[in-house]
């Protein structure tokens, strides 16, 4: 089996496509590979948002705990997606639970390290922020569609 470094694998993820290789190398210093087992919790609501994740394989469910017990899944992310934007926005706390639903491989970035590099070089910060804003925009649009409950019963 060939072992590939993060600087080799990161450009394959859609989040980094088109990034300057030097920037990827810089940010790779904040990253490590992780493996999650089915049902393993990645983070819980209210915990400090200390990481940012790029999903390489598998699937992660974002879920909201319910007062009556249990939880509802409100979104899933999978290969090619990113997990978590709360690391970028004060007060840096997770708004949902995240749980792997199947075997999952991801790249985990240390949020403090990433923020420091973004602040030190505004061009890097802008590039990262633009990608994250694009993802937030897409998810907001999808969430609005789902709020319409378009598959529900409509009455005149």
């Amino acid at each position: 089996m060939t072992i590939r470094s993060l600087t080799e694998t990161l450009p394959e993820h859609p989040f980094f496509q088109g990034f300057d290789p030097a920037v990827i190398e810089l940010l790779a210093g904040c990253a490590r590979n992780i493996h999650l087992r089915p049902d393993e919790l990645v983070f819980r609501t209210g915990e400090p948002a200390q990481h940012f994740y790029l999903i390489r394989e598998g699937r992660i469910a974002l879920q909201v705990p319910e007062l009556s017990g249990g939880s509802s899944i409100i979104d899933t992310v999978e290969a090619g997606d990113v997990l978590g934007v709360s690391w970028l926005v004060p007060p840096y706390r997770w708004l949902f639970d995240a749980r792997a639903t199947v075997e999952t491989r991801a790249v985990s970035f240390d949020a403090e390290c990433l923020r420091a590099k973004c602040e030190a070089d505004p061009a890097v910060g802008y590039a990262v922020l633009t990608r994250v804003a694009h993802i937030m925009h897409r998810r907001l649009e999808a969430a609005r569609m789902r709020m319409l409950d378009v598959y529900g019963v409509r009455r005149a």
């Binding site: 939880s71 899944i73 979104d75 999808a142 789902r146």
Partner: peptide, 23 residues
């Protein structure tokens, strides 16, 4: 297949159907 909302036990996708188109 994707659904708009799901209970904890669901192992499939959750999200709007358009999210499936790019991939």
């Amino acid at each position: 297949v994707t659904v708009d909302n799901a209970p904890h036990s669901w192992r499939g996708r959750v999200g709007f159907v358009t999210s499936l188109i790019p991939r």
